[in-house]
């Protein structure tokens, strides 16, 4: 845990430097190639918008990491859990409930879902190879997808929980016209940060959190000291379900609740490759890098290649990482002693 914290600190200190280098590089490019456009104010604006967007990627990736850490299962259904959670939330709001009440009920639904998945899907397959469990999560993906739409309808829905959407202009004295920040993105980022902080405290300092980490380390040993794996799995899936709910609300309020929400899981994959499948800080930093990277690349490098860079930038970056650092930025190294 400490080693991770140290690495996290080093990266945080490096960030301003990396940003400055990136900016200088782009500025240089803009001088060489006149089709490119660069000002520092605009650069920071795009960067911040990207980072805030990245928080949402991080949230989705976080759900994957939780389940992967505790059970070694790559949960293909995480994306459809996001969609299902958001649909449920909208459904409750449409019944006329206040959004806070709808949130609590939707969280309850996600917990019930987690318990059902553990009982019906995971428990009978407990000793099967991981690939079988992975297939099972593909099954869950399609089930949730269909079930959610049957239950709540398949048209695009608006989710509005009253988060302000006005643009803000900051530092108008430093940069001409100030830097435009979308207040919705800012709120989403704050919510994400709070969620992550709560999870970190839960994992680090509570009895159940400790048991979760123990299970992640060694199933057999956890069983031998009497930690009930089934309970732990149900808890992990519940937590992942609630994280999916928060991610679903944020994405849904931004872009509407529709099937494409289930596909943002595809964006989480490069985030995981970047951050490492087992690392919570990795999921966060990975999400930020991908979010910021793809926005900056799209705006400042897009003209070079004719645009649409945003769609594949994340995968390019992930591919690069697979070549040079396959365990990801923060992937846990296997401790080996001689």
């Amino acid at each position: 845990m400490n080693a991770t914290a140290t690495r996290f600190g080093i990266w945080m200190a490096l960030v301003p430097l990396l940003i400055a280098i990136l900016g200088l590089g782009l500025q240089g490019l803009a001088i060489i190639d006149t089709s490119l456009f660069f000002t520092w104010g605009y650069f920071l604006e795009v960067l911040i918008a990207g980072l805030l967007q990245g928080v949402l990627y991080s949230l989705v990736a976080l759900g994957f990491v939780l389940i992967f850490k505790a059970s070694g299962i790559f949960n293909f259904a995480q994306g459809s859990m996001v969609l299902f959670a958001a649909l449920t939330m909208v459904g409750f709001i449409e019944m006329g409930l206040h959004w806070t009440l709808a949130f609590i009920l939707a969280a309850g639904v996600m917990v019930v879902l987690a318990i059902v998945i553990e009982k019906v899907v995971l428990r009978p397959m407990v000793n099967q190879p991981h690939i079988i469990l992975f297939m099972a999560t593909i099954g869950i993906f399609y089930f949730l997808d269909g079930f959610g739409q049957t239950l709540w309808g398949s048209d695009v829905k608006v989710l509005d929980i009253g988060i302000p959407k006005d643009p803000m202009f900051v530092l108008p004295n430093v940069f001409e016209g100030g830097i435009l920040i979308n207040s919705f993105d800012l709120v989403a980022a704050l919510v994400g940060a709070v969620l992550v902080a709560v999870l970190a405290v839960f994992f680090q300092y509570t009895r159940v959190g400790r048991a979760l980490r123990a299970v992640a380390d060694d199933h057999q040993a956890a069983l031998s000291v009497g930690i009930p794996l089934k309970t732990i799995w149900a808890i992990v899936w519940s937590v992942a379900g609630i994280v999916a709910l928060v991610a679903g609300i944020m994405w849904g309020s931004k872009a509407g609740v529709q099937f494409s929400l289930a596909l943002i899981a595809l964006k989480a994959l490069p985030v995981l490759i970047l951050g490492g499948f087992t690392s919570i800080p990795g999921a966060i930093v990975g999400g930020l890098i991908i979010g910021a990277g793809e926005q900056v690349a799209e705006v400042f490098l897009g003209p070079l290649v004719g645009g649409a860079l945003q769609d594949w930038f994340a995968y390019m970056l992930a591919l690069g990482f697979l070549l040079f650092r396959p365990q990801g930025l923060f992937g846990e190294k296997i401790i080996e002693r001689i």
């Binding site: 845990m1 123990a214 380390d217 060694d218 057999q220 956890a222 000291v225 009497g226 930690i227 401790i335």
Partner: peptide, 22 residues
């Protein structure tokens, strides 16, 4: 268990505390 099976990424004290889970 044979081969000790401590929780590698937990501290010694956290390992001991997991023993009190039940």
């Amino acid at each position: 268990m044979e081969g000790r099976h401590c929780f590698e990424h937990l501290t010694i004290e956290e390992n001991l505390l997991t023993g009190a889970y039940t």
